[in-house]
C-alpha cells in the first residue's frame, strides 16, 4: 500500500474533526475491507482514522423491542452476545458466519454497514430488521440508508456510531456462499415483525447491493411459510452476474434461500 498517516482519536468528535482537518482521509475500525483495498493499491487515503478504540462506539444493548450494537463492536462480540442471541438469534448467527474466526475478531459491524459491500451479510439484517443507522449527525432508517453499490446515505465525514435493530416476532437468515470468496452469492434475511409486517432483504445478488424483495414480502404477509414462496422468483434483470454465477442462477438461489430462511426460523442456514 502507499504511505499514509495513521490517527487514533479517542472520541467521535475528535475523529470527525480529524477527518475535516486532514483533507484526504478515510475512517476504519477493523480495516478488513479498507486495508486489503489499500494493499491492492486501489485506495490510497493520505490519512487513516482508526475508530476501533473509541469507547462510545462499542457495546451491545438489548431491550424487548430493539438490539443496539455499537459500530466498533466486532463480529465475534456480536456472535458471542447472549443478549443478541436471546433477542434475534439469526443476527448473532449472521455475525458468526462472516469471513473466518480471525476476521470476525477484528472486523466490525459499523465497518460492514458503512461500506455497504454488495456481498456483505450485515446490510441484509439491517434492512430486514428495520434497523436505524445512528451517526454522529442523525438517525437514518434502513430503507433510506442503502443507496447502491458501496453507496450509502452517509455524507462526507459522517460516522456510523451504532445500529438499532428492531426485535422481530421471528426471523431467519439463509445464505449460499461464493465458493472462492465465501461472501454470500445470495443471502436472504426474512423477518416477521411484531406489527405483522414482513421484510425480506437480499444481499450478495443485487446489481445495486442489498434490496428488499417486495413480492416475497407480500406473499409471506398472507401466509408466513416456505410454501408461500413456491413459484415466486426474483426478477433476474437486477441481479448480478459474474464468473461464479449468472443472474438467472443467483435469482434462483434467492428464492431457495428465502424458502430456507422461512423454513428454518430462529437460525442461520448456510451452504
Amino acid at each position: 500500500m502507499y504511505e499514509t498517516t495513521y490517527h487514533r482519536p479517542g472520541s467521535v468528535a475528535e475523529a470527525a474533526s480529524l477527518f475535516s482537518s486532514t483533507g484526504d482521509a478515510a475512517y476504519f475500525s477493523g480495516g478488513h475491507t479498507l486495508l486489503p483495498t489499500m494493499k491492492a493499491r486501489l485506495a490510497a487515503p493520505a490519512n487513516l482514522i482508526d475508530l476501533r478504540n473509541i469507547p462510545d462506539l462499542k457495546g451491545i444493548q438489548a431491550s424487548g423491542d430493539s438490539v443496539t450494537i455499537g459500530a466498533a463492536t466486532t463480529h465475534a462480540e456480536v456472535a458471542a452476545s447472549n443478549d443478541v442471541a436471546g433477542a434475534i438469534a439469526p443476527l448473532a448467527a449472521l455475525a458468526g458466519s462472516i469471513g473466518d474466526p480471525a476476521v470476525r475478531h477484528v472486523g466490525t459491524m459499523g465497518g460492514s454497514v458503512a461500506n455497504n459491500d454488495p456481498a456483505a451479510d450485515y446490510p441484509a439484517a439491517v434492512l430486514a430488521l428495520a434497523g436505524t443507522v445512528h451517526t454522529n449527525k442523525r438517525e437514518i432508517a434502513a430503507d433510506d440508508y442503502f443507496t447502491g453499490l458501496f453507496s450509502t446515505a452517509l455524507e462526507e465525514g459522517e460516522i456510523v456510531t451504532k445500529v438499532a435493530f428492531k426485535v422481530p416476532e421471528t426471523s431467519g437468515y439463509a445464505k449460499f456462499r461464493n465458493p472462492a470468496s465465501r461472501y454470500p452469492m445470495a443471502g436472504v434475511f426474512v423477518a416477521k415483525h411484531k406489527d405483522g409486517s414482513v421484510r425480506v432483504a437480499v444481499t450478495g445478488a443485487g446489481n445495486d447491493g442489498v434490496f428488499r424483495w417486495n413480492a416475497a414480502e407480500e406473499a409471506l404477509s398472507g401466509n408466513f411459510s416456505a410454501d408461500a414462496l413456491k413459484g415466486l422468483s426474483v426478477d433476474a434483470s437486477g441481479i448480478m452476474s459474474d464468473i461464479h454465477g449468472s443472474a438467472p442462477y443467483r435469482a434462483h438461489l434467492v428464492g431457495v434461500m428465502a424458502g430456507r430462511a422461512v423454513a428454518n426460523l430462529g437460525t442461520l442456514t448456510m451452504d
Binding site: 495513521y6 487514533r8 480495516g31 478488513h32 486495508l35 486489503p36 494493499k39 491492492a40 487513516l48 482508526d50 476501533r52 465475534a76 469471513g99 473466518d100 474466526p101 480471525a102 476476521v103 475478531h105 477484528v106 470468496s181
Partner: peptide, 25 residues
C-alpha cells in the same frame, strides 16, 4: 486478500490476521 491465514498471530489473546492489522493500530 486476508484469506490464506499463514499470518495468524494472537493479539490480546485472540487470533488475528497480522497482514490486515496495522502495526500502528
Amino acid at each position: 486478500t486476508s484469506q490464506c491465514g499463514a499470518c495468524v498471530v494472537h493479539m490480546d489473546g485472540i487470533a488475528v490476521k497480522s497482514c490486515t492489522v496495522l502495526a500502528a493500530a
